[in-house]
Amino acid sequence: MQPPASEQIIVQGSGFADWTSLNDTIMGGSSRAGCRVTPEGLLLEGELIEAGGGFVSCRSPRLQPPLDLSPFSALQLEVEGEGRTLKIALGCRDGALGLTELIPGGLRWVIDVPTQAEGVTRVRIPFADLRPTVRAKPVGLPLRFDSVGVTRIQVLHSKFGDAGELNPGFRAGMIRLLIRSIRALP
Rank of each mutant, 00 (worst) to 15 (best):
V79Y: 01
R93L: 14
Q64A: 15
L86T: 01
D129W: 12
E101K: 13
V123R: 10
G53S: 10
E78I: 02
Q76D: 00
D94H: 01
G52R: 13
D68C: 11
L97T: 11
I103C: 11
W109H: 06
L63K: 08
I88C: 02
P114H: 02
R84P: 02
G106N: 03
S60V: 13
I88D: 04
P104A: 08
T115Y: 04
R93W: 12
A117H: 10
I49W: 05
R122E: 08
R59C: 10
I88A: 02
D68L: 11
T115R: 02
G81I: 00
F72L: 09
C92A: 09
T100N: 12
A51W: 09
L77G: 02
V120R: 04
K87Y: 05
C92N: 09
P126W: 07
E47G: 00
G83M: 04
I103H: 08
L99R: 09
L77C: 04
L102H: 11
T121D: 01
G54T: 02
P66K: 12
P104M: 06
P126I: 08
R62K: 15
L90A: 03
E82A: 10
I49L: 13
G106K: 00
L107Y: 10
P114K: 06
Q64M: 15
D94G: 04
P104L: 05
G91T: 08
A96N: 12
A89F: 11
G106Y: 01
L90V: 03
D129E: 15
Q116F: 06
P126C: 08
L86Y: 00
P66C: 13
A117T: 14
T115N: 02
P126Y: 09
S70Y: 05
L97K: 11
I111D: 13
Q76L: 04
G83I: 04
S60P: 12
I125S: 00
S73H: 14
G106M: 03
E101C: 11
W109G: 07
K87T: 15
P71N: 13
V56H: 03
E118R: 13
D94N: 04
A51D: 14
E47T: 09
L99K: 06
G46Y: 02
G52W: 11
E47D: 05
F55C: 07
G53H: 08
T85D: 12
S73M: 12
A74V: 07
R84T: 05
V110K: 04
L86S: 01
S57F: 02
S70F: 03
